[in-house]
Structures are given as C-alpha cells and as structure tokens.
C-alpha cells in the first residue's frame, strides 16, 4: 500500500499554483490544492483541479510517431529526433529561418517552454513562437 501526496506546481499556466498529486499504488487518483501555498492559498481553477487526468490519459502518446508511407508508425526517439533535425535544417537552408514556427505546450513546465523559445531564437533564429494556451 503506497499512498502519497506529491507537492508540485500546476503546469497549465504561469501562475504557478501549488497542488498535491494524490497517488495510490502508483496511480494518480486526485488533485488537491495546497492550502499553505502563498500563491493559490488552497484554490485552483478547473484546469488545475483536473491536472492529474492528462498524465495517465489513454489518448496520451507515449512514443514518438513518424509518418511513413502515409501511416503513423511508432519509432525510437533517436530516429524521430534525427529525422526532425535533418528536416529542420533542410527547411531552414531552403527557405530561411522564418519558415519555421514553434508551438509550445501548456502541459509542460515553464522552464521547458523557456528552453523551447530559446531554441527557436538562438538555434533556428526565428521569433515565430506560439503557445496553445495563448488565449
């Protein structure tokens, strides 16, 4: 029997609400807002309350998919990344940096999103960065 409440920060937006992810025997069961957090003081929004759901959603992709002969096929990370790098380089050389756009995710941490835009600006050289939660 392994019951835990793991203190973490909501990944959905930049507010940084603190919450506990409740898990029983390795499965997430519930989200509880942290009352002692100075940020959200025991409150959450609808997204925060359901943050445990996407983690173990059946629809979540666990492995990279690559379209081969018009069909999405599971491939290794190495193959997927190599393919992405070669294509990105190809596009950049043929059409310039601004022909590449970056789309960040609301379901990763702020730090990861920071890295993404840094990569876009420093490595590729474009300002075309957007985010799915930019409402």
């Amino acid at each position: 029997m392994d019951y835990r409440n793991t203190l973490t920060t909501c990944t959905y937006c930049g507010c940084g609400c603190n919450l506990f992810l409740e898990s029983l025997d390795g499965k997430l069961t519930h989200t509880t807002p942290c009352k002692t957090s100075p940020v959200n003081e025991g409150k959450l929004c609808i997204k925060g309350w359901n943050v445990h759901q996407f983690v173990q959603s059946e629809k979540r992709l666990n492995k990279p998919l690559l379209r081969k002969d018009g069909k999405l096929t599971e491939v290794s990370w190495d193959e997927a990344l190599d393919f992405t790098v070669s294509k990105l380089k190809e596009i950049k050389e043929a059409n310039g940096s601004d022909s590449v756009g970056f789309f960040a995710s609301a379901k990763v941490t702020n730090e990861e999103n920071y890295l993404m835009q840094k990569f876009a600006r420093a490595a590729i050289g474009t300002n075309s960065v957007d985010h799915c939660a930019r409402l």
Partner: peptide
C-alpha cells in the same frame, strides 16, 4: 489498524498522509 490517515508537515507544507 493498517494505517492512519492524518496530516503531515513536509517541505514546509501541510498535506494529507497515510501513516503506516
């Protein structure tokens, strides 16, 4: 009892906890 559900102080925050 197999365990006790109570509150615990960890990392400066109070959280529900199962003491075993």
């Amino acid at each position: 009892v197999k365990g006790v559900v109570a509150l615990a102080m960890a990392n400066g925050h109070v959280a529900p906890c199962l003491f075993q």
